[in-house]
Design a protein around this nucleic acid. Sequence first.
DNA 1: TCCCTTATTGCCACCGGTGTCAACGCCTGA
DNA 2: TCAGGCGTTGACACCGGTGGCAATAAGGGA
Lengths: 358, 358
Amino acid sequence: MKPGPATKSSTHAAIEPKRRPTINDVARLANVSKKTVSRVINQSPFVNKETRERIDAVIKDLGYAPDPVARGLASRRSYLVGLIYDNPNPQHVIDTQQGILDIIRGSGLELVVHPCNRRDKDFLAGVRGFIDRQKLAGVVLPSSVSEDDDLVAVLRESETPYVRIASVLLDEPENSIVTNDREGARQAAEHLAGLGHKVIAHVSGPDTFRSSHERRAGFVEGLKAAGLQLDKKLDLRAGYTFQSGVEAGRRLMANQTRPTAVFCGNDEMAAGVCQAIRETGLDICKDISVVGFDDSPLASRLWPALTTVLLPIRSTGRMASVRLLGDRLTKEPLEDDDLGEVHPRLVVRASSGPVTKS
Amino acid sequence: MKPGPATKSSTHAAIEPKRRPTINDVARLANVSKKTVSRVINQSPFVNKETRERIDAVIKDLGYAPDPVARGLASRRSYLVGLIYDNPNPQHVIDTQQGILDIIRGSGLELVVHPCNRRDKDFLAGVRGFIDRQKLAGVVLPSSVSEDDDLVAVLRESETPYVRIASVLLDEPENSIVTNDREGARQAAEHLAGLGHKVIAHVSGPDTFRSSHERRAGFVEGLKAAGLQLDKKLDLRAGYTFQSGVEAGRRLMANQTRPTAVFCGNDEMAAGVCQAIRETGLDICKDISVVGFDDSPLASRLWPALTTVLLPIRSTGRMASVRLLGDRLTKEPLEDDDLGEVHPRLVVRASSGPVTKS
DNA sequence: TCCCTTATTGCCACCGGTGTCAACGCCTGA
DNA sequence: TCAGGCGTTGACACCGGTGGCAATAAGGGA
């Protein structure tokens, strides 16, 4: 095998240990200029069919793959997709991330994750540095940062493509993904009202998140549609965290009129409320129904399993990526809900049931 | 605002909208060659103090930051750290990721996440492509992939620095982080034995993970130390997932001699076992004690809160990064356990208690 | 005083691609 | 026969840094 005419190695002596083939190697072997090779790898239509085939053959033979770093330098655009987030909820991050990866896998693009903290004084400087050092192919902004106007301004200024994921339609529909949290919360309200609950509490997320407002608003709408309204004393603000949910739950339990049902702005807080209920010695569902939001893994692991509103975060990650990079990347046809919009859906489990006389 | 003398732009006419300063700009203004500037940004010791100060001043004045892409091309080393994983457990991923980010934040390095699936036939090709396209500054291999010899071979071949996180000491101590899972499991066994349990079951993770074996082995050791042993019928293999835990739990509940305690290879499975126990109508802790492993967020959200073994995954991510990049990056002193080794610790909560007569 | 070091610095090629634009061959219509 | 147009290709500069090595200045020893 060794002797005889060189199979795929070039004819001249090759002392070098091994080196990734470059565009020059391809050009030489295909007897064209490197510019033409460049055209081929960039799928330019201005290449003769035969030339293209010849080059493709050489590329395949050599196992050539263009160097993303060099391409990045020359074209002033890297082959990296950024995910910028500021999130109290790791599950959200992982899901969005996974959605993006679903789309870019195998495309040569890579995902760079960049957490930040909007309360830091140099938050913007940090993100700005990131953005204009790496000249990202695109950036996905999940709901935790999608409404930060300063951030968006930085992105726009640096001419970096971006897609925003938010609970409501923003001013740039063409690069937004809407999650319609309000719809989901409305379903939760209808569900509880339908079970006969009248005294229903709400534990919402922090004021700084649009989703908190949307979920609360949808819930209030749902109640109203059922002829109910949200008692101020049963309308608590918490922080989207488990611990804040525990505290809110304790306050509810200590309230003079105890609710028969609680709708929480997310599953973490719902788990916290469940804990508070149990501390009181009451039963979830039998005594007090609890409904969460997100359908995080936690929801199905609790006992009784949590009734919640499924928010397909991973899908939003996928949709955002498609928006960002075009659908040329997606081999598999996307689920038909790829219209830049996603609809939450109530998942009824065991933590909610009909109101019982007491 | 448009008219008027340019504020901070250079004196000559600047038609260009705005452009990031380059090393050339710095060199020109500091009156040195760009090579010298390069030396300064790379902290070369062979630069005259005054020259360095002059250049630093210009850099600061201009707000110059070197382009990582260009640097990557020239030096054949990118400024990206890779995290390669193949993990059934998102929480693990998020924690490791966060640990790495703790260290590289603000250093100019960025984190690229690259999931893979070791059962795919082209798994290795995919990872190899990733690795030698991006010439990573370093790669962190969490336990899910750290013992894949093929993968490690690829890394070594491409001369990419890497650190492996594993449950036991590997053959390359200098670039490994050890989690000592065995110790943790032993503590769990001692805990349960100390509570008087004799009939103790174990639900372990999949055969393909070293950690499954280590945790099981540590558990068996602990039992043995207490004069107990693991009944074959109570020694179940599951898959580290919630669902597999439910199924294992159901099998245990159906077993002729029901255990009074169960130690699970991770919290997810423990949650599954809890569910199975409840389905049977039994009480966790009172009837059957359950102990998990990981101390994931789930553990404290369950009711009763899960006794488990805390495994500081985030710390391992931090330690791995330090190993990889040296401690020059870490502003804050690292916790003193930075010896390439981490020790699990039992966290007693409410899911385990003394054995009760029945 | 001269040669050899050591400390600093600059020159220039190069990393592996892309952008710009000119050039070439061939066909068409005048 | 010739200008013009289309399809295709290549030459060359350039992206923004780093590597290798020579050049230069200053200091020390013989």
